[in-house]
Design a binder for these strands. Structure first.
Lengths: 343, 343
DNA sequence: AGACCGCCTGTTAGCGTTATCGCCTGAGGG
DNA sequence: CCCTCAGGCGATAACGCTAACAGGCGGTCT
């Protein structure tokens, strides 16, 4: 049952291959075969070995195995702030998928968003000889860092933009933003203001592109996008500026948290949502349906992204000519924070 | 620069210790010493070796090192749903602290909250020979699983209750809940209703104890606690029941997300917050200050908890007689969701 | 002057596993 | 009857690193 407690080997230490072999009356090699290629051993012998394995509570030493095979069964995930809803969910789903396939996941958070930082993080994992790495760092500097990685190490990225040098799993940010913007225009709003994510964030850029694209295609005025930092606080601060401008009737926020801040700022300024101003968010966090009013938003399926990322990595590790990109389509979830423009 | 790309050894593969030794004109052992005990090598020799290390872009093979030293430089974190705010933040801070001390962190999420599940997760990590494990699973079944773990493997827990069999870092849930409850009573409310977390969750229990303790000490009626599942949705559903009861004037929710659901339910029922009903949450997520109204809540310093957990583990790994518990004091943050009871 | 000590470096022997090759046995074919 | 061949298993040699000991060299103490 327990890794190092019960079933100690004869030496008083955890049992090793040799102990199992001795107990089963076979050679070490046979035990190894039972564990790695069971059908190459006679059934009777196999049973005897397995009995010994159970009796001694033998667990293979992964370091020794790794040393000789070169593979570790460990994947690395390099990620920015895993406290954020998106990265946290993605990480969680990568880990789940990996676990089902027998992999363990090691993480390396980035302290700074510097190109060196990403390389350093990949190195930390590389030094632990991971079999592959998923990079969750939707940041320009990260994309830059992706260009200078060990070519032997299978690497895939998440949300690393439309022209990512490594295979990437991502939500179609442009499509999502376009959907949100079109929704607002269809309600009769003249144009849509945007509270975007931080400069240099790739998904922030993608959302801006999608938003701007629709406005331009429809021949609407394109206000300068405001830039926050994803936090509710920044949404609030920018929201106060928008609240002062009576011409603002529709706001598309780069994520739900900033949208929450915008909602609060509008409320404080006495502008009603959705009667006076419509607001759309991005992400669809579990909370968003309970904001006041419940938030219309763009749902990102992070679970899907995580799974895709893992399978892309699996392909790369198998040496297959992996697809270069898997796009996940986001959905617009219409709630009560958006309504018809007043005439 | 890159782990396996540039600076290949003479063999066309990544450089190994021997390659560095050959290039520097010393023995392998000297190279090893330069890396592990630099002051035991003459400065001049050291420089020569380091130059060779750089030239070949040598990175020690962690598997080989682990095989012979028995230590891996990897810590494991076993955690429930790392999507939840608390566990996610704790994990993040553990990783940060670990990184600063030169450790890598591997994660193992729990799929189910079963006693076997925790043991299985610890095993997965143990099989990868981690040096120690932090368990973030504030659940009764986890506490149970803690009793049957490899005694040789240093293990500490987070939020595993006041009578945890292993060293534990935790927020003083009782104190936090008591503070919230006293705050509401001090505003003149006759008693306080509670929307608690799921049964079997240890921190949910702690909060109930703290809440109940204050009510009993003050001789107030103690309503049956309602139990949600931490989600805003469950808070909303339970909130609707509370909203129907006109005697309810003060609600203490087990976390901010459920509090959000309660706020929404009250609003829909036409009961104003804080004029008719006061609401307190628990956690103080970044969003909470922007709910409507901004939520009075109990702030948990998860960063501090993560750091404590890591240092407890470090002590245990060093074989020191570690403290058995580190309590972090939560703070009451008063915002606008609580107000004086109406007479 | 000889014994001794400390500093620096090298030699040897594993750590626990799997790759590789080779041996043995028994069945089947000429 | 001998040869071949395949299945099943064992002996040996790595994998890359460090622990433990050994030795050489210069200086210090008696």
């Amino acid at each position: 049952m327990a890794t190092r407690s019960e079933g100690r080997g004869p030496r008083g230490r955890p049992a090793v291959l040799g102990d199992v072999a001795a107990l089963a009356g076979v050679s070490a090699m046979t035990v190894s075969r039972v564990l790695n290629a069971p059908d190459r051993v006679r059934a009777e012998t196999r049973e005897r070995v397995l009995a010994a394995v159970r009796e001694l509570d033998y667990w293979p030493n992964s370091a020794a195995r790794r040393l000789v095979t070169g593979r570790s069964g460990v994947l690395g995930v390099v990620s920015i702030d895993t406290t954020l809803y998106g990265p946290a969910t993605t990480l969680y789903c990568i880990e789940q998928a990996a676990r089902l396939s027998g992999y363990t996941v090691s993480i390396a958070s980035l302290s700074t968003l510097h190109r060196r930082s990403i390389q350093e993080a990949v190195h930390r994992l590389g030094a632990q000889s991971v079999d592959g790495v998923v990079i969750v760092a939707p940041h320009e500097s990260a994309a830059d860092g992706l260009l200078h990685l060990p070519p032997d190490l299978p690497v895939v990225a998440v949300d690393a933009g439309y022209d990512c040098p490594v295979p990437v799993a991502m939500v179609d940010q442009r499509a999502g933003a376009a959907r949100a913007t079109r929704h607002l225009l269809s309600l009769g709003h003249e144009t849509v203001w945007h509270v975007g994510g931080p400069v240099d964030w790739i998904d922030a850029s993608g959302r801006i592109e999608g938003w701007r694209g629709v406005l331009e295609a429809e021949g609407r005025p394109v206000p300068d996008p405001l830039r926050g930092d994803w936090s509710p606080r920044s949404g609030y601060q920018l929201g106060r500026r928008l609240a002062e401008d009576p011409s603002v009737t529709a706001v598309f926020a780069g994520n739900d948290q900033m949208a929450l801040g915008v909602l609060r700022a509008l409320r404080e300024a006495g502008r009603r949502v959705p009667e006076d101003v419509s607001v759309v968010g991005f992400d669809d966090m579990p909370e968003s349906a309970y904001y006041c009013p419940p938030l219309t938003t763009v749902r990102q399926d992070f679970r899907e992204v995580g799974r895709h990322a893992f399978h892309l990595l699996l392909d790369r590790m198998a040496g297959e000519p992996a697809e270069s990109r898997r796009l996940v389509e986001p959905d617009l979830v219409v709630r009560e924070s958006t309504g018809a423009a007043r005439r």
